[in-house]
């Protein structure tokens, strides 16, 4: 099962097992990862599951879709490697993915 590593703003790292086909957000919620709120439940409608994808993984995750980019306007401290974790689908290729959670969501 692919592993995802969440690093919070205090640099604490948490590794979780993620099912292929689920979203990065779902794995964060299932494992009570702090710093991911996911108010809308994964509808790409709230920007409270905002993460920074580690630079080394950017190519594999790809960038945000136009709809996701629109929602990111409501995120905070949005950077070029910002994504909404509900829009990143876990694949075997993403085994070892590193994402950082921002200081706050909302």
């Amino acid at each position: 099962m692919p592993k995802i590593i969440f690093i919070d703003s205090g640099n604490t790292s948490r590794t979780v097992d993620a099912e292929v086909g689920s979203t990065v957000m779902e794995n964060a919620i299932r494992n009570s990862i702090p710093g991911i709120e996911a108010e809308c439940g994964g509808a790409c409608a709230c920007a409270t599951c905002h993460v920074y994808v580690d630079e080394a993984w950017l190519e594999k995750t790809g960038g945000p879709s136009p709809m996701e980019e629109d929602m990111l306007d409501f995120g905070f401290d949005v950077r070029p490697n910002s994504r909404l974790s509900c829009q990143i689908k876990v694949t075997e290729e993403l085994d070892g993915l590193v994402v950082r959670t921002p200081e706050r969501q909302a």
Partner: peptide, 10 residues
């Protein structure tokens, strides 16, 4: 509610 504010078109 949320149907109107968060996902009217979803």
């Amino acid at each position: 509610g949320q149907c109107a504010e968060l996902y009217p078109e979803k």
